[in-house]
């Protein structure tokens, strides 16, 4: 599903965010990216949806090398990748329903599809009854559920999550993890960057550890360390 081949990403000649990184993620896998601050986790996630381009190497997503993908093909790539962020990135002037519907609307989905898929995903993330609330009327955990619902409503092949529990207390974070686990259970590949030792240790999934842009560990059913 995702394959990096000798990928190097430099922001400047001095700042090498990722160096000669290679790994492969199979369809349906759940992968944690761990490592200290500045080790390149977010950079790696941004390479997968072509928010960044590497200087060297190849990035394969769903069978395509996306490094030299023409820009008119990128929207199609991104429709297959859901994104979840630490700060949720919700639109504050839209309700829960509208935030999720927006993701379908702007890729041209017809109204009847929206009216069918949005309530279903709201149910899935456990926000039934709160669809007319605005983000500032929700707790942090609920806001993150909205953002996961928005990322998942189009049934992407891959879900990319950058510290989704970073702003949440441990209990709330666990709820989010159960949700991501369920989404992973539907066959969606999940790649998640995190600093949360407890979560990684509890889930026992594959762990890729970065240190200053270099992959120093790639362990099945790993722990945080």
């Amino acid at each position: 599903m995702i394959r990096l081949e000798n990928v190097t990403k430099r922001y400047t000649t001095e700042v090498v965010a990722l160096q000669d990184a290679s790994f492969e993620v199979a369809k349906g896998e759940f992968v944690f990216l761990v490592g200290p601050s500045g080790s390149g986790k977010s950079t790696l996630l941004r390479l997968i949806n072509r928010q960044e381009r590497p200087e060297e190497g190849a990035v394969w997503v769903a069978g395509r090398n996306i490094v030299d993908m023409p820009s008119n093909r990128i929207p199609q790539l991104r429709r297959n990748i859901g994104n979840v962020f630490q700060d949720y990135k919700l639109l504050l002037n839209k309700t829960v329903f509208e935030n999720i519907a927006f993701a379908l609307e702007v890729i041209g989905k017809p109204k009847h599809v929206i009216e069918q898929q949005v309530p279903a995903v709201i149910d899935l993330v456990g926000l039934a009854g709160k669809e007319d609330r605005f983000p500032d009327q929700l707790s942090g955990g609920e806001q993150q559920r909205v953002s996961i619902a928005r990322a998942f409503v189009n049934r992407p092949l891959i879900l990319v999550a950058d510290e989704p529990t970073g702003n949440l207390d441990p209990g709330t974070g666990e709820g989010i993890m159960r949700l991501l686990d369920r989404i992973n259970g539907t066959g969606t590949t999940v790649v998640m960057a995190t600093h949360d030792r407890r979560i990684v240790d509890a889930m026992r999934r594959r762990v890729i550890q970065l240190d200053r842009g270099v992959i120093v560990r790639d362990q099945a059913r790993g722990v945080y360390q």
Binding site: N72, I74, P75, R78, K89, L91, F102, V106, I107, N154
Partner: peptide
């Protein structure tokens, strides 16, 4: 810009935006 950022991330085309 926030809306535009979200639109790009979920795969809206440049023309649509």
């Amino acid at each position: 810009r926030r809306e535009i950022e979200v639109m790009k991330l979920v795969g809206a085309t440049d023309w649509f935006i």
